[in-house]
Every structure is written in C-alpha cells, then in structure tokens.
Design a protein around this nucleic acid. Structure first.
Length: 303
DNA sequence: CAGTTAACCTGTCAGC
DNA sequence: TGCTGACAGGTTAACT
C-alpha cells in the first residue's frame, strides 16, 4: 500500500500489536525481500531474533520498528507490499515473503506477515543515526518524549524529506526548494527528497484540487499557488487517511486485510473519460514517467 | 551538477 | 480457452 495514507494505516494498525513484543521467530520465504538489508552487521534473522520492538514509526512511505538493540526494522511496501497480522497457525497468505513470530507480554503470540506481489518492497534491519535537525525522526503516535529512538532515523531513510503532515515539516524550506527546481511540478511532488509521502494518486489529486498542470515548471509557481498546493496536499492526505486510504482492489489493505474508502472520493486519478466535477470537461490521461497522469485540460492549463 | 530514464518484479485484465 | 500486451499505488542506479 504505497502512499502516505495507506502506509500510516499500516503503522497505526501495527503500533498496538507490536510495541513491547519480543521477536521469537523469523522465517524468510523469499530472499529478494531482503534486498535492502546490509548483512555486514549481521544477518536479518540474527539482528532480529530475541529483540524487543519499542514502537512503530513512519516518515513518508517508510515505516520502521525501533528495537532494544538500538537498530530498527525498516519496512517499505514498494508497489504491492502488505503487512498482515495473523493468529499463529493461520493458513499461509499467498505471496508471503517474510514472517515474524512475536511474543507480546499481554497479547500473546502473533504473526506479522510481509506479503508482496511484485517484490519492490523490502524489510531490513538498519542502524539508527541522530536526525540532522535534532527533531523526531518520524510519526509514532503518542509516545513518551524521552525515548532514545525518537530523534533518530534509520540510515537508509535519512535522505527522505519530512512529509507534509509532520509537525516539523518546513513549508518555507519546501517553497524554496520548489523555486529552484527546473522540472515539472508533478516530478517535484513525487521527489521524496523534497517532500515525502506523495505518489501518483495523490500527486494527481492535489494538482487537480490546486488547478495546476502537472508539467508546469516547479520554479514558475507563484507563492500563492505553492501555498494553495501545499494546503491541498495536506487536506487530501488527511481526508484519505480518515477514510482508511485508497483501495481499488484487495491489494491495498490494512493490517487486518480490510480496504479503505478513499477511492470513491478521487476526482482525477483513474477518472479519464469522465466529466470534471467542476467544469464538465472530460478528464484526460497522459503518459508521464512511465505511468499515467490524470488531469482536467480546462481547469489545469499549462501557462 | 541536475534532470531523466531504465531496471527491478508478478499478477490481472482487455482484446484477439 | 489460450495467448499477448498494457498496466499497476515506488525507488534507485545509471544514464544524458
């Protein structure tokens, strides 16, 4: 489940189940899902076995579980990853790549199944480093202030920008980056080094809301346009999160395998050939960055 | 250097 | 009923 709202749905579902639990077992069914694990400090299984999970944290589309070893399990869902909580003994999920068996002091035994059709996602145990700004590494719900992992971030996530619903996100810094980007605004929105958490669906939705053409040069946006766009990003991500994320099929589900409801609220993504809700002009789909870009040719003019 | 493209993968669905 | 090609919500290495 790829974009910020879908990943946050997973994080929120994981947090109460895994916080305080001990990793009692690790089963690897497909080594490719460990592509991002650097074995120099030890194998994935060795780094994880017997460790206690302290929290569930997210920045953009990256998720991590800090461990009592000072390291963290980093999870990225890629295009098709799922994290499913199962009762031990449950029937094997199709396309299961990795399974963690947890022992929780009060909830008992639990399976955390990492399922991933396309294997673009991954799990890895990674070192933590202090954040560059000394602020919290990501969102972890309501957690004690002095936890040592709080102002740290996994090294493989350090280059990812803060996301727009992070209280520490700097709008002025983001506007300054946009102002010197010589590329289209959609490319900039999808660049996780500028702003994280936005993918193809929410890029199209927010540009539609802000009435900006996807190829409009990022540096050409007025301050007012950039402000409108960021406000749209925040509003739409929050609404999608409140509705449990966007699901077109059983691929994008929460930790219990349930779909979200935001798909019915989409105004542009996947709506090509249907009338724009504002002006009635047919929504167009164009090929862009090897994917689809959906927009209203009347409301979103290139200028 | 910044910007853009290719590669990594499997499953599903439309069209023949 | 196959077969083929298009398509899918992301990231990063390697191009230009």
């Amino acid at each position: 489940m790829p974009e910020l709202p879908e990943v946050e749905v997973v994080r929120a579902g994981l947090q109460p189940a895994v916080t305080g639990a001990i990793v009692a077992g690790v089963e690897i069914f497909d080594e490719r899902s460990l592509r991002r694990h650097q074995p120099a400090a030890g194998s994935f299984t060795d780094q994880l076995s017997g460790r206690r999970i302290l929290a569930a944290v997210r920045r953009g589309k990256f998720l991590w579980l800090p461990l009592d070893s000072g390291r963290a399990v980093v999870i990225h869902l890629g295009m098709s990853g799922q994290v499913l909580l199962r009762t031990p003994g449950a029937t094997t999920d199709h396309l299961l790549r990795i399974r963690l068996s947890l022992e929780h002091p009060t909830h008992g035994e639990l399976w955390v199944n990492f399922v991933d059709q396309r294997v673009f996602g991954s799990m890895a145990v990674d070192a933590m480093a202090p954040t560059a700004d000394g602020l919290p590494g990501g969102y972890s719900g309501t957690v004690e202030e002095d936890a040592p992992w709080r102002d740290h971030i996994p090294t493989q996530v350090a280059h990812i920008a803060r996301d727009p619903i992070d209280p520490s996100f700097s709008a002025s810094a983001f506007f300054a980056l946009l102002a010197r980007k010589n590329t289209g605004i959609k490319r900039a929105l999808l660049d996780q080094n500028l702003i994280s958490g936005i993918g193809n669906i929410y890029a199209d939705e927010t540009l539609f809301a802000a009435r900006i053409h996807y190829e409009q040069p990022a540096s050409s946006l007025s301050h007012a346009q950039a402000t409108t766009l960021l406000a749209a990003v925040r509003t739409i991500l929050q609404r999608a999160l409140a509705e449990g994320g966007t699901s077109f099929d059983a691929q994008y589900v929460n930790v219990n395998g349930q779909s979200g409801y935001f798909a019915r609220s989409l105004e542009a993504y996947g709506r090509h050939g249907t009338p724009c809700s504002r002006c009635g002009t047919l929504i167009v789909r164009e090929r862009f960055m090897n994917r689809g870009s959906h927009f209203c040719p009347q409301c979103q003019r290139l200028r």
